[in-house]
Design a protein around this nucleic acid. Structure first.
Lengths: 344, 344
DNA sequence: TTGAAAATTGCAACCGATTGTGTTATTTAT
DNA sequence: ATAAATAACACAATCGGTTGCAATTTTCAA
């Protein structure tokens, strides 16, 4: 079972009695090679089982045909949808993916970025860790003009594109929905306003309140890490408030779930006592009783859009990088957790 | 913002008035280079911001320092844990990861394998798609002696290693638990016995029945695709059985959940009317009411073990490949979905 | 038939790192 | 002090493909 040597363009050239140059050009469909020669090359290449050597090509071209992806975690429905979308668009165009997770740590994020940089990826797709406050660890990329696209959890940077939803509007709709269901004392559970995902959601929440003449209360905003456990902890805090709040808008589903479970355990009725709205439309929202009202948006699509944009950017040198932000659609999905009988 | 040229070993060599050979060897900590020279090289390299060129090195070494991973889906808690584990072990040793998902299609799996092959990964970690019946699409790897490790969803192959849990035993324990809870008419919902994960679970189920003098009934085994929707469909089938079964062992959690939800909707009480046991210990098992009894095993660990094994295999030429199968620990976690009051 | 434009194809350098072999400098032994 | 052994480093070929420019062949109008 000895390793047979790989077939190279030189082997093909020798066989055909032409130069490696011609083979190389023939394989690339270069216009100066005659159709006849091209055909011969292609056929023989196929027959001999030729496969191009990425490294030789990358070494010469200074291009890798690989994108790096850095996400906080892989294990959410949303993120794996995004990756599926990216994969779909990237594979279609012959790009490979190098994937890393930051585990919500900006330190790990920086180290992954470094790895990606050293791997010479042609572009980077990033959703930021929750504690990432600045983007200096991407400076390498910016300096070398390697395109970086941020999605979902983004931050403004002059030389990169952001792809996300209108978090302010989505949060506004969520909050307004709670208000329309008769809620007046509405809690907002979210993460530190470092990421503007959360900043914007808070803004939307505030605006909805204000538009309905409900006074914003600082103590109604609970800052957590949005984990399921954090939801349970928040529940304890909320249950001790007097008077008891009657609505909760949580900035993600799993935290909302944690909160709901803890409340249910205390005998709180949902939505009668407290109505809930989450964010992301994770499948678990349809497992919990009552089903969780939430904001839905397509990770798959976001991934596709991000990848396609990146591909365009890489392919087209003259790509007009005036695009700064791309906003995708999102919608409120109303389920039992927020539907109060006898309301309005 | 012009792209500055990369620093190469030649630049370092010129600066230090030594040869590139020495720089290369110095960087590799080669024994024939004096400590003094090494130190100088390392320092200057660092100072000049040198980073080694993967491609040049790969081209020369015929090694990529990259592993390929192919999994059915990324969006399960289990799989993302596995990947986290792999990432942890691989990064530690300086390996990069190329990740692809087969979406449970052996066709996509084959195409991903091809991509990985063309990318010249040094090794492959695979969890098979549910409909993969043969491994010919990995022949390329086998032929070239590129190590392939299968995990969780495995198939026997003379030249590859399998890493998994004892599915037969786990299923046996799950079924025995149901029997001990007083169940006598126990359904098993699973996938086609193409993957021996499912074959073994079925075997364990049968053995537990037989050991407790319960007759195995062919019609109590429901073959599905194990999706949540399939669980709901299965529920309808089961509800029409007379007499009604009193226990269900499902080969994964999300299908179990789908089934439970559909049953609850029909007013079936769990576990009083029907007891449930799932498989995987997905977080959602602790969201559903009642919480789902399930089989727990660590994806993270499985990933680490798989990656470490692969690294050893790649590093050590003389690695004794007598290892064929590695079995990891698993355990039954008993929760409310199967705990019947008043039973034994 | 001839000369020039157009169409094809080849030469050779280059991308950056690695390594077998040879060379020079330094020790050690005699 | 001199031969022999050892340490430290350099030469040059190699991995496989790409590309500017030159060389050759074909085509076609005059």
């Amino acid at each position: 079972m000895a390793n047979e040597r790989e077939v190279t363009i030189y082997d093909i050239a020798r066989e055909l009695n032409i130069s490696a140059t011609t083979v190389s050009r023939g394989l690339q469909d270069h216009p100066t090679i005659s159709k006849k020669t091209k055909k011969k090359i292609l056929e023989l290449a196929d027959q001999m089982g030729y496969r191009s050597n990425h490294f030789a090509r990358s070494l010469r071209n200074q291009k890798t045909n690989t994108f790096g992806i850095i996400v906080p975690r892989l294990n959410s429905h949303f993120m794996s949808s995004v990756i599926a979308g990216i994969e779909n668009a990237a594979n279609e165009q012959g790009f490979s993916l190098l994937i890393a997770q930051s585990s919500e740590s900006s330190v790990k994020e920086a180290s992954s970025a470094r790895t990606m940089f050293d791997s010479r990826v042609d572009g980077l797709l990033v959703s930021l860790a929750v504690d990432t406050t600045e983007l200096t660890h991407f400076d390498n990329f910016f300096k070398k003009n390697i395109p970086v696209i941020f999605f979902d959890r983004v931050q403004q940077h002059e030389s990169s594109v952001n792809i996300l939803i209108d978090n302010r509007q989505a949060a506004y709709n969520a909050t307004r929905h709670l208000i329309e269901q008769g809620c007046r004392k509405i809690i907002h559970i979210t993460a530190p306003a470092v990421q503007n995902v959360y900043k914007d959601r808070l803004k939307g929440y505030k605006e909805a309140l204000s538009d309905h003449k409900i006074k914003f209360r600082e103590d109604y905003v609970l800052i957590t890490n949005l984990s399921q456990e954090a939801g349970a902890t928040a529940a304890q805090t909320i249950l001790q408030m007097k008077p008891m709040p009657d609505g909760i808008f949580v900035a993600n589903d799993s935290c909302a779930i944690g909160c709901m479970l803890a409340m249910k355990e205390q005998g709180i009725r949902i939505p009668e006592d407290i109505a809930f709205v989450g964010f992301n439309n994770d499948p678990v929202t349809q497992v919990i009783a009552p089903n969780l009202t939430t904001i839905n948006y397509s990770g798959y699509e976001m991934g596709q859009v991000a990848a396609r944009h990146l591909i365009n950017h890489v392919r087209d040198v003259s790509f007009i990088s005036s695009t700064n932000t791309i906003i995708l659609r999102s919608e409120l999905i109303i389920r039992a957790s927020s539907l109060r009988k006898g309301s309005k």
